[in-house]
Design a protein around this nucleic acid. Sequence first.
DNA 1: GCCAACGTTGGC
DNA 2: GCCAACGTTGGC
Length: 155
Amino acid sequence: MNYWLMKSEPDDFSIDNLQMSEQQTVAWQGIRNYQARNYIRDQIALGDVVLFYHSSCKVPAIVGLAKISSDAQIDISAFDNRSPYYDVKSNTNTPRWWQVDIQFMAKFSKPVSLKQLKADLALQDMVLVAKGARLSVQPVTPLQYQHIMQLTILK
DNA sequence: GCCAACGTTGGC
DNA sequence: GCCAACGTTGGC
């Protein structure tokens, strides 16, 4: 079982939106970055745990937990020319983009802010904290995960 | 809204 | 395969 961090802009889709979704589950479509795609297609597995991160907002922070609730599937939004995620270069013969379902697990009573993560000596190797990291799907080590959970509990 | 950092594209 | 130009991300 592995740990991941996934970003979402709360104005677009927040942890509250996830919690209120049908079955508290949503298909994570629209990943259009190859490294993130590779994680989704090749490494992320059913039951893995996701740190849900709010980006491009007032207080960027890890705001809760989700879990991977499906195998990787072809992202058909890439085939839909009315979708904002449309990609003319993806087709059913050679699908370029993939998705997984994520299911709500928990919302933190107090989020763990990016500022807090950056200031924590135990988390300097996090992909998120590493200078310039922009990946929207990124691996988290078990130690990093445990440390972050300690922070939320201590709050 | 600015802009640094990064990813992608495409000419050569 | 290099790399300049361009587009995007996302913190501030």
